[in-house]
């Protein structure tokens, strides 16, 4: 029974990926910009006038990237490429492979965004739960309106404020970048600490901006859970406060938060774009912005395909692991 479910779920995953990839193929094609022309214009500007035969280059490039083939042919080539994870060459940065560009950028984004989101999720959920559980703690009650204000401010604005006060005025943190220009990328403590140091401000802006969402969501669920009969019975059982809080209240209130987290994880990379731009961070966001600017088809396709996979996989992981968290969703196995 479980195998049937898993097979169905995997077929579903495949269909979702193919559908999304199809949209991904056609949407950039609606633009009347020509990436090859952009590339050639840029090349001709940086070389001596007349030394480049534009017409000839255009033909060569179109042929090299397969852009002279019929659209449907290109589409099937594209699908084949994507499904074999061959992400082709970048048009703008030819001869760099898109896969290499993504591999260079992805760790930055994942490292920053995943960590910051997990921190925000944990802190927000714990704080949200405590505001309901510990009505006697004054400081916590004060916390709610504050995070509500922060969750209303977009995080790039928070980022700008942090840069202005802590980096520009205060000088405690670097203004931008993923690491110091003088640092040499290597797996040693000097470089790692430099990277961590650079990630504090962008990370903090994400945490500050999103902690409120988690806290408010958790608060709402905790209020609902507190009205449940099983909380009443737990109290009548004379359970220790700590157990009632963790195993009864939080354990049930966290369930919708986990779903939310999985959805959030899939969209991290897109969410990162503005943060990365504000902080000049060398991640997927910056890469995608650049690619869209030049309409570099293959880089766009590559990045968006990675996003599609991320969303689809995080939903798959959620679906497979959620029954462990909530036994009521295990019925399909019975």
């Amino acid at each position: 029974m479980y195998l049937i479910y898993l097979t169905k779920r995997l077929i579903m995953l495949f269909l979702v990926v193919v559908t999304a990839a199809t949209l991904n193929f056609f949407i950039p094609r609606l633009s009347d910009k020509n990436p090859v022309l952009e590339k050639i214009t840029e090349m001709s500007e940086s070389s001596a006038p007349g030394s480049v035969n534009m017409q000839e280059l255009l033909v060569i490039f179109n042929e090299r990237f397969g852009l002279d083939k019929p659209l449907m042919q290109q589409y099937f080539d594209y699908l084949g490429d994507m499904l074999t994870l061959d992400l082709n060459y970048s048009i703008t940065s030819y001869p760099t492979r898109v896969a290499d560009m993504i591999l260079g950028a992805l760790p930055w984004t994942l490292g920053l965004m995943v960590t910051a989101t997990l921190i925000a999720f944990l802190l927000g959920s714990v704080l949200g739960a405590l505001t309901v559980w510990r009505k006697d703690m004054r400081l916590l009650q004060f916390f709610v309106p504050v995070v509500m204000v922060f969750s209303a401010i977009p995080f790039y604005l928070i980022g700008l404020i942090l840069i202005y006060f802590l980096a520009y005025k205060g000088g405690y943190f670097p203004i931008g970048g993923g690491y110091s220009l003088t640092a040499f990328p290597a797996w040693d403590w000097d470089f790692i600490s430099d990277v961590l140091y650079h990630s504090i401000l962008p990370g903090a802006s994400i945490v500050v901006a999103s902690i409120g969402i988690w806290a408010l969501g958790m608060r709402g669920m905790m209020v609902t859970v507190q009205g449940e009969d099983y909380m009443n019975f737990a109290e009548a059982k004379g359970l220790k406060n700590r157990r009632m809080f963790l195993r009864y209240a939080v354990r049930n209130a966290i369930l919708p938060q986990v779903t939310q987290l999985a959805l959030f994880m899939g969209q991290l990379v897109t969410g990162a774009i503005l943060v990365e731009i504000v902080f000049g961070y060398p991640g997927m966001g910056s890469l995608l912005l650049q690619a869209v600017d030049y309409l570099d088809y293959y880089t766009i396709y590559g990045i968006v395909f990675v996003l599609i996979l991320a969303v689809a996989l995080s939903m798959l992981i959620l679906d497979l692991f959620y029954p462990l968290l909530d036994p009521r969703t295990r019925s399909h196995r019975a």
């Binding site: 099983y230 009443n232 059982k237 004379g238 369930l255």
Partner: peptide, 18 residues
């Protein structure tokens, strides 16, 4: 529970579902 135990109304929802 040790000396007095109380079985609340609504047993349908009195057990922790997880």
């Amino acid at each position: 529970l040790c000396w007095i135990s109380y079985i609340p109304q609504g047993a349908m929802n009195s057990l922790n579902p997880v």
